[in-house]
């Protein structure tokens, strides 16, 4: 796509807007803020599309811009959602929202899973999103989030173990017929 081609850009935006919005939302945890960051991402891409060097996939380049833009937004708004020091505390997902009453009310693992992911740190939530929804490899995720491959691998493993432990009750319910 050449710079300035608005028709082609509109098509491209429709194709990727949910991905970009989700990445931003994982960082900013707010619909309004995430939309603002996603909008800024697309404007940046529109202005700098000529600088895309095809060394990586277009989606990898786009998602890395989205992630950086969302982080910049959170810093500007002093939202304090991104701090590597907080990674550990984010991993300690609170149980307060997954009460036994909710378990019976919302016996929907998908919904609970979405809520739990939203409680993760921006980096962790995006690792899960990019790996499962963005269908990105560990190498690509490392490039997008500016981490090392081994770091992403370890985080992915630890995150899934944490999620498994937090959601064992729900998961057991799902597999009870199969055991």
């Amino acid at each position: 796509m050449k710079k300035g081609n608005r028709v082609a850009f509109s098509k491209l935006m429709r194709q990727y807007q949910n991905y970009v919005f989700t990445i931003c939302f994982r960082v900013l945890k707010s619909q309004e803020e995430a939309e603002e960051a996603a909008q800024d991402t697309f404007i940046k891409v529109f202005k700098t599309i000529d600088s895309f060097k095809k060394e990586s996939k277009f989606s990898t380049w786009l998602y890395s811009i989205a992630f950086r833009t969302a982080i910049d937004h959170s810093r500007k708004k002093k939202m304090n959602v991104y701090s590597m020091d907080q990674e550990e505390s984010y991993l300690q997902i609170k149980d307060d929202k997954i009460t036994p009453s909710q378990y019976t009310e919302q016996h929907d693992l998908k919904k609970v899973l979405g809520e739990v992911i939203q409680k993760l740190s921006p980096v962790d939530a995006n690792i899960i999103t990019l790996y499962y929804q963005g269908e990105k490899s560990v190498k690509e995720i490392a490039e997008i989030l500016e981490l090392t491959e081994s770091n992403v691998k370890v985080k992915l493993y630890r995150l899934r173990e944490t999620l498994k432990n937090k959601l064992t009750r729900y998961l057991r319910e799902e597999i009870k017929d199969l055991l």
Partner: peptide
């Protein structure tokens, strides 16, 4: 857990997002 994570859906921006951008 893996299967449920794979089935997870992306979030969607508001209806007029494309026009706004």
């Amino acid at each position: 857990l893996h299967q449920n994570l794979t089935k997870g859906e992306l979030l969607e921006p508001s209806f007029n997002f494309t026009n706004k951008v």
